[in-house]
């Protein structure tokens, strides 16, 4: 479907409003990230923020007003629909659907499985755009082995389109060895990337209405060992629009950790464990 077709199909109704879902376990830094987004001067007008108001709300209301005149904070809850007939999230989206919105940023509850929230974003008038999960570098390892929440925090990471690693200063050696696009909260392109992130998905790609730059990831999965020359060639071939590459690749000399930001490439042999379950590269590109 071309952009023109999408326009034609939507003559009777406005484009659905894209929703960026920000997930992650309790304390990972979701609210801090949202506050940083709201404090940005380039924050597009017409952004609504949905927060989970069963916890402490730390969203800075002043920031919301100054950054986005149409912005609203509406509580939502994680809960089974059968137990809440007036279903908060649906109600919040219904309220928002009367506003001239460009986008919604939705903070999930810390115990939400982001994929379930993603389902919920297919609400009339809305469309899910990206599923971003914040991971706490300081506590992820212990949480991921916890008897009660281990399965949940791993599922949250597995379901993400983009991982944001927070609190690296508390644990500089932290690495999530998996082939999902990831940034740290100190990355200079963090906010633009979060706002522009789009899951590669036929519907969201054509219906997206964001006016900011759009970002997405491509993943290359390694099937067989490469020579160093082949790896360089692979990295060069991907240059266009790609501004970041990260991953783990097996070359003749062993498994290398690959990290390229802009033109700066770091290759270092991986000596410690665990070896990533799947080797390959993630390319973050602007589109």
């Amino acid at each position: 479907m071309s952009d023109n077709d999408a326009m034609g199909a939507n003559l009777q109704q406005p484009n659905p409003v894209p929703i960026t879902v920000i997930g992650g376990y309790l304390g990972a830094g979701k609210t801090t990230l949202i506050n940083r987004l709201l404090a940005q001067p380039t924050m597009p007008a017409g952004t609504a923020v949905l927060v989970n108001d069963f916890g402490d709300i730390n969203i800075d209301a002043a920031l919301i007003k100054s950054a986005s005149p149409d912005g609203q904070v509406i509580g939502l809850s994680n809960g089974c629909i059968c137990c809440s007939i007036s279903d908060d999230l649906s109600k919040a989206l219904d309220q928002l659907s009367n506003l001239p919105l460009q986008r919604v940023i939705m903070e999930t509850s810390g115990v939400a499985e982001p994929a379930r929230v993603w389902q919920h974003c297919h609400y009339p008038g809305f469309t899910p755009q990206a599923l971003i999960v914040v991971v706490d570098a300081e506590n992820f390892r212990s949480q991921s082995k916890d008897k009660y929440v281990g399965q949940l925090v791993n599922a949250q990471v597995d379901q993400a389109d983009l991982l944001i690693v927070s609190k690296m200063d508390h644990n500089p050696a932290f690495q999530l060895r998996r082939l999902t696009a990831q940034l740290t909260t100190t990355d200079p392109s963090l906010l633009a990337t979060v706002l522009g992130w789009t899951r590669r998905h036929p519907l969201t790609a054509t219906l997206s209405t964001t006016k900011t730059a759009s970002f997405a990831a491509r993943t290359w999965y390694q099937q067989q060992a490469l020579s160093l020359e082949e790896l360089y060639a692979l990295l060069d071939r991907q240059a266009e629009g790609v501004y970041r590459i990260k991953g783990w690749v097996e070359i003749t000399a062993g498994i290398m950790q690959v990290d390229r930001v802009g033109e700066r490439l770091t290759l270092k042999p991986m000596e410690d464990r665990p070896v990533p379950a799947q080797l390959g590269l993630v390319f973050i590109c602007s589109t």
């Binding site: 009777q12 109704q13 659905p16 629909i81 007939i85 007036s86 279903d87 999230l89 649906s90 109600k91 219904d94 389902q119 919920h120 297919h122 609400y123 009339p124 008038g125 469309t127 519907l203």
Partner: peptide
């Protein structure tokens, strides 16, 4: 029915609303 898009947990041809779609239906029926 024209508002209802795929992925919404609504099978509009069968008039079936479930999970997320149920939330939508309940809001309309409230």
């Amino acid at each position: 029915p024209a508002q209802i898009k795929p992925g919404m947990q609504i099978d509009i041809d069968n008039g079936h609303f479930f999970e997320v779609g149920l939330g939508f239906a309940i809001n309309r029926l409230n």
